[in-house]
Every structure is written in C-alpha cells, then in structure tokens.
C-alpha cells in the first residue's frame, strides 16, 4: 500500500473526503431522510404534529387522493412501458447500424441523432406542442401531403392520446442515450469473437442476434434501470407541455407532477408539504424496489464477459 500505516488519524484523508461528504450529506442524504420523516407529520393549528401513518392512510384510503395516486402511477407505468418498447429497441437498432464497420458519415449521424437529447424539456415540450398544434397545421399539413390527413387528431388535447404522445416525444428526445451506450458496448466486442462466428458461417443479422445481442445484454440492463429511474421521477416535459394540472383532465398526470401539485398547491388547493413528502416517500419506495430488482434479480443473472 502506498502510505505506511501510522498510528493516529491521517488528516489528509479527512481533508480530501470532507468537502464532498459534507455537501453530499447535508444537501442530498439528510434532506432525503428528512423528507421521509416529514411524511409522518402534519400541520395542525400551524404546528407540526406527529400523525404516524395518517398521511399514507389519506393517500391510499381517501378516494380523492388514492384515485389521483393510482392514476399518476398507472400513467407513469404506461410512460415507462412506451420507453422500454420504443426508445430502447430504436436505440439498439441505430447503434447496431452505426457500429457496422466502414460506415461512412457515422460520426455525423451520431452527433445529429444525439442533438435532441441535449435540449431542455422546456424547448422540446413547446416545440412539439407547436408542431402538433391544430392551429399551426404542420402536422396535419404533412399528413395531408402523404394522403393520411384523416389520421390527424389534436393528439395533445385528447385524453386518450395525450400521454402516449408525450411519452413518444420523450422517446424522441432520449433515444440518443441508449444509442450511445449500446454503441459503446458493441464496439467493445472483440473482433476475434465475430471472426470465429464468421468461420462458422454466422454473419450479418444472425451474427447480431446470436453473438452481439447476448453480449450487450448487461448494457441493455443498465439502460433499462436508467430509464426506470428517469421515468419515475420525470416532471419537466409534462409540466412544460401540459402545465401543473397535467391536462386534459389529469390524463397525463405522473408522479412528479402529482407531487409538485400537492407540495405547492394549485389554483384553489393549498400546498401541503407533508402530503408532498408522503408522495415523495412512495416514489422513493417505487424507485428503490426497481433498483433492488435490477441489482439482485437481473444483474446477477447476466454473466459479465471480461475480454
């Protein structure tokens, strides 16, 4: 080991660790647990009182709250499913094409396809809102040009389409991330393995399905859990496109917007930090379950290949 162990405290270690640990503990870990703690309190006569599990009883037992919660959770799950079914397969497909050897302009395509990912949700939300708007008419005009005008609907304004449309907008924005990560994983597959496959007559598409795909499964696992965490704490896109009320008629409400509305209040409802904390705690548990399922269920089963 580099430093001979001396008796006493090696102060330089403390100095090196202190700033990061202090900021991280004070601004991230402590508030996180404090939020969990606050969910057991309520404000009665302007005083903070311990109410035990009452907030959760309200959240799950009172139909006004529980309907909203299950609606938000259901919408959030659908949001996640769309990402898994659309974003990740497209990302993998694009990465597979980009990683094929001697493809010209690969860097150019890669940079261009990644551009939406760097834009903020505010820009993306408004840009798509304008494009899909029936007033402006870009979307209906383009459908008209290919003879499909009858397909046009004011997607963001209709309850049955709004959530799916927003999920697809989010997919459009974030497809760059799975694309890049899978691309990196595909590049790290050694040529010898592919050449060995070629000797056995496995080339082209079958090489992808039989050799490459199994080898990039760990990366797909990482992308899935990143998508999960990202989706279950999403907020910005819905807020930018549909506002805090997540219209039409809460059909695009997800946990992030639900928590924001509860915490800050909107229109006539007053903000309630304690109910907000209760929702945050529920989100924490959901994310924790997802992460644990991944760490103990999926990741351990995937064999990591070391080259």
């Amino acid at each position: 080991m580099a430093t001979p162990s001396k008796p006493g405290i090696r102060w330089h270690i403390v100095v090196f660790l202190a700033p990061a640990v202090l900021v991280y503990t004070a601004v991230m870990i402590y508030p996180l647990f404090n939020t969990l703690r606050l969910s057991f309190f309520s404000e009665i006569d302007q005083e903070r009182v311990w109410v035990g599990l009452d907030n959760f009883r309200t959240l799950f037992g009172n139909t006004i709250w529980s309907d909203q919660f299950w609606n938000a959770l259901g919408n959030n799950t659908w949001f996640f499913i769309i990402h898994m079914l659309v974003q990740n397969p497209i990302g993998v497909a694009l990465a597979a094409i980009l990683s094929s050897p001697r493809l010209r302009f690969a860097a150019l395509y890669r940079s261009a396809i990644f551009i939406p990912t760097i834009l903020s949700f505010v820009i993306v939300g408004f840009a798509w809102k304008l494009i899909l708007s029936p007033i402006w008419g870009i979307a209906p005009g383009m459908l008209d040009a290919i003879g499909l005008k009858f397909l046009y609907q004011p997607w963001l304004g209709k309850e049955e389409y709004a959530l799916t449309t927003l999920a697809l907008v989010s997919v459009w924005q974030y497809v760059g991330i799975p694309m890049m990560l899978i691309y990196a994983a595909l590049l790290s597959i050694p040529d010898e393995i592919l050449e060995a496959g070629e000797c056995d007559g496995i080339t082209g598409l079958s090489a992808f399905w039989k050799i490459k795909l199994p080898l990039i499964l760990p990366s797909i696992g990482i992308i899935s859990i990143l998508t999960f965490v990202g989706n279950f704490n999403a907020f910005d896109l819905i807020y930018a496109a549909q506002g805090a009320l997540a219209g039409p008629d809460f059909s695009t409400d997800i946990l992030g917007t639900f928590m924001y509305r509860t915490f800050f209040g909107f229109q006539l409802q007053l903000g309630d930090p304690h109910m907000g904390s209760a929702i945050a705690s529920a989100m924490f548990v959901i994310i924790l379950i997802g992460v644990c399922l991944y760490l103990f269920g999926i990741q351990r089963r995937l064999r990591n290949y070391q080259f």
């Binding site: 601004v27 404090n34 928590m259 915490f263 930090p273």
Partner: peptide, 24 residues
C-alpha cells in the same frame, strides 16, 4: 463503506428530497 455511501446517490434521484431541501 464510504464508497458505497457516496455511490447511493447515483441511483436515488435528489428530487425525492425536494420538500426537505426547500425547507432547509
């Protein structure tokens, strides 16, 4: 242990603690 403690925040989003952060 310190490494694991610092790594916790990679997966848990800081937004969950918003209520307490605002209060602080």
């Amino acid at each position: 242990l310190m490494g694991l403690y610092l790594a916790l925040g990679i997966m848990i989003p800081i937004r969950i603690g918003t209520v307490a952060i605002l209060e602080m």
